[in-house]
Amino acid sequence: MHGSGISIWFFIGVLLTVYGVLIFGYGVVEWVTGISPGVQLAYLHTPVWWGGLLGALGLFYVVKFRPGRSK
């Protein structure tokens, strides 16, 4: 978006980062403790890598579009 103010990409980055941390964290706990999530392909540990991807993408947006950063 043009003009001053917080970019929408920053908001998206914040939400994806929080989601990434929560899902990745839960995935790690699941993996370490051996809790079964009761879904197919559980051996792929999807929450770990998907949560990691969301978190990384979110962090990228947070940093790149943080308020006050010169463009």
Binding site: Y26, G27, V39, L41, T46
Partner: peptide
């Protein structure tokens, strides 16, 4: 979704 998504991912 229910088939593959466990806690957290299902919420997503």
């Amino acid at each position: 979704m229910v088939r593959y998504m466990g806690p957290g991912l299902l919420g997503l």
